[in-house]
Design a protein around this nucleic acid. Structure first.
Lengths: 334, 334
DNA sequence: CTTGATTTTTACAACGTTATAGAAAACATT
DNA sequence: AATGTTTTCTATAACGTTGTAAAAATCAAG
């Protein structure tokens, strides 16, 4: 079987606890003793048993990450960065895909998944703050995204409204006046969709351009739905000279549909997105998009969660972090 | 604190072990007793402690997945599917990103990661079979991909050679004679790159079209490198009327570069890829690509790994599984 | 009823670690 | 050398579950 601390203790001629002390950097150990233990560890190839350590200490050195679908590029890139950031601090990340199922989302707050993990990064999509609060337990929990803005919870988010406004201003400055928005209902006010739509409306207002609900097309945030939404706009005969996809895949789907139908991008219609996934740079034409500072989001969310776990952050209120953004102007909307 | 089996036992008026027996579907329990225990579990909201269970039983109900980078679309989609497949069998998947670092790849075979997991899905990229064999230990290990083809290991892969040949035949049938290949050196013979290149050569040979090493451009499998490789070809003045990207992101990067430079796709140059990631359908023009049966790969790899874990598959030799493929003809190479 | 076989339940140890509390050793001070 | 103080080490008990082996209860048959 595997080498245990007991084997190491025997080999080094010390007690079990002394080995444990060496491993945990206990202060009062004679250098000679420490050396003997470390030699024994090296010689036997001992590796600590995380399961046993967890059982005894209650810590797992794992973080949980709940998101709807890992195959969505934005989430894939985010998960990758979060894992790397966590790894720098000695933590692993376990991913749970909710598929936007309420039962799965809520389930991830409790039960095995929660148990296996010292803290949770949670991207709620379909459950509300009260439901979360009722089930959250007392392990640290940091929200990602914009579905929940509640003072009870820690939250790491991006400047959705400002960034959407900046992007809209950019389109307006380029002379576009009929900017279609894909990915929200005209009255949407909550979540990422609502915030980004607000930014769009505010920029229009500031520029004195009237808001037209006919330009706002609801769609789930996927490529195919983005394509379908723009097809719908074209078929209903609504005039537009720009498309703002509320995320990149929507914009890319829309752009695809436009190109198929012979609409020139950006000459006839400019297209812009939100997220700046890797693909945005390499689309044809390359996609103008808001880059929401994913590195910063990853770094700060891991930082905040680990601060909570270690008890370094003790605010009773939720801490709210907003990462900066950058507008990446590319060919699709110069 | 959390409710333990002991609390349940006390509430139901039975012994600890009886609760355990109920949870583990032990055969000989009086229905009345079982009911009392289950009522107590429901009433107290008991949830088994996985850590304790793992420590005692040696099983974790987790699988490991080692891949280079989760943000690569192919891996993101594969990971997502693998997680869903595993979840159907009551397992979770922990992902480890190797970044193609040999030390990380080998490290994932041992140490904590291995310990936390009942079996490993391993996509080796930079380490060889002997190094793996030396470190693999005895927990089940299933290889994904083509870097290692060794009878010692279980392997789930795709029909790289046949699929690449089929794609090449398709390009030849459309009249293309100068088909550039991006993502391999001209002498590459191992790994996915080598196999796909072999398929390409075989199809050329069967068609009596001479192989020209000048048409083969090495490149790491990313968008930017794909773009750079095609730029290199254009600048050296090599003539070509088609590009076969050895994976989709290479092809998409190449297509982007071609379009930027005013080369018409598919009129001047046809472009085709391999993987059929979601983006392939929505690129402009949409990308002709080999679909390597990712669902089947996910299903079969989880199946094989779980068979090994449960001892249902006991072949001493490695079991080799090859998923089927399909050619998706789209606009970029009709 | 008694006996023997079968079903049902239980006590106790064990998995490999960390926490507690105290014993032993080393050092400093008189 | 005796005393007190600090450093170093250790024995033992947990953490919450499953495995082993045996005890207790039930049933069938005489």
């Amino acid at each position: 079987m595997a080498v245990t601390m007991n084997d190491v203790a025997r080999a080094a001629g010390v007690s079990l606890k002394t080995v444990s002390n060496v491993l945990n950097d206990y202060e009062f150990i004679r250098p000679a003793t420490k050396q003997r233990v470390q030699d024994a560890i090296a010689e036997l190839g001992y590796e600590a048993n995380l399961t046993a350590r967890s059982l005894r200490s209650g810590k797992t050195s794992m973080l949980g990450l709940v998101l709807s679908d890992l195959s969505a590029p934005y989430y894939a890139e985010l998960a990758s960065k979060l894992m790397k950031a966590a790894s720098r601090h000695g933590y692993r990340v376990m991913v749970e895909q909710s598929d936007a199922e309420p039962s799965v989302e809520l389930g991830a707050l409790q039960g095995t998944f929660r148990q296996l993990t010292d803290g949770l990064l949670f991207t709620p999509l379909v459950v509300d703050a009260d439901a979360i609060a009722a089930r959250a337990g007392k392990k640290p929990l940091v929200m990602l995204g914009e579905h929940i803005m509640d003072p009870r919870f820690d939250l790491v988010t991006m400047k959705n409204e400002e960034a959407a406004a900046a992007l809209t201003r950019h389109l307006l400055a380029a002379g576009r006046r009929r900017i279609a928005v894909i990915g929200a209902g005209p009255d949407e006010s909550a979540g990422s969709a609502g915030l980004r739509l607000n930014g769009y409306r505010k920029a229009l207002e500031d520029a004195g351009v009237p808001f037209d609900a006919a330009l706002v097309a609801p769609a789930e945030w996927r490529r195919d739905t983005g394509a379908a939404a723009v097809a719908g706009l074209l078929e209903t005969g609504v005039e537009f000279d720009a498309v703002f996809g509320l995320n990149d895949v929507l914009a890319l789907g829309a752009m695809h549909e436009l190109l198929i139908r012979g609409v020139k991008v950006p000459q006839d219609v400019a297209v812009a997105g939100f997220d700046d996934i890797d693909e945005a740079r390499f689309a044809a034409p390359s996609l103008t998009a808001v880059s929401p500072g994913m590195d910063e989001i990853a770094e700060r969310s891991i930082g905040l969660l680990l601060d909570r776990i270690a008890g370094r952050e003790t605010s009773g209120q939720g801490v709210h972090v907003e990462a900066g953004f950058e507008l990446k102007v590319r060919e699709s909307a110069p």
